[in-house]
């Protein structure tokens, strides 16, 4: 890999597959954000995507926030903020709301 330009860049995260046009990519970002927030809500966390900044912004209740490049990094940061993994099969996730 070239040190100066970073080519070939690391391939995108697998969850970013499935959209081949710019419009589809943007729709994917927003549609996915809704699901991500439903998964985060039981843990008091939330994510935002303003459509312009690359990646997602992850917010903790105390005001802490972090910019993450992909969903892998998002779940990693979220587990740090929530002091445990955001588990879609946990009681917390299944009984919230």
């Amino acid at each position: 890999m070239c040190n100066a330009c970073g080519f070939p860049a690391a391939p995108g995260h697998w969850t970013d597959a499935g959209a081949s046009s710019a419009g589809d990519r943007l729709r994917l970002r927003f549609a996915r954000l809704a699901v991500v927030n439903r998964l985060l809500a039981p843990y008091g966390l939330s994510a935002r995507d303003d459509g312009a900044t690359p990646g997602l912004q992850l917010f903790a209740p105390g005001g802490e926030w972090v910019l993450v490049p992909d969903l892998d990094a998002l779940w990693r940061e979220a587990s740090r903020m929530a002091r445990g993994p955001v588990d879609p099969m946990s009681d917390r996730a299944l009984t919230h709301g």
């Binding site: 699901v35 969903l71 892998d72 588990d87 879609p88 099969m89 946990s90």
Partner: peptide
């Protein structure tokens, strides 16, 4: 469902379990 819901859910599940 669709791909976005599934990929978000599965990535969280694989991270946790």
């Amino acid at each position: 469902g669709g791909w976005w819901a599934l990929s978000a859910w599965l990535s969280a599940l694989l991270f946790a379990r």
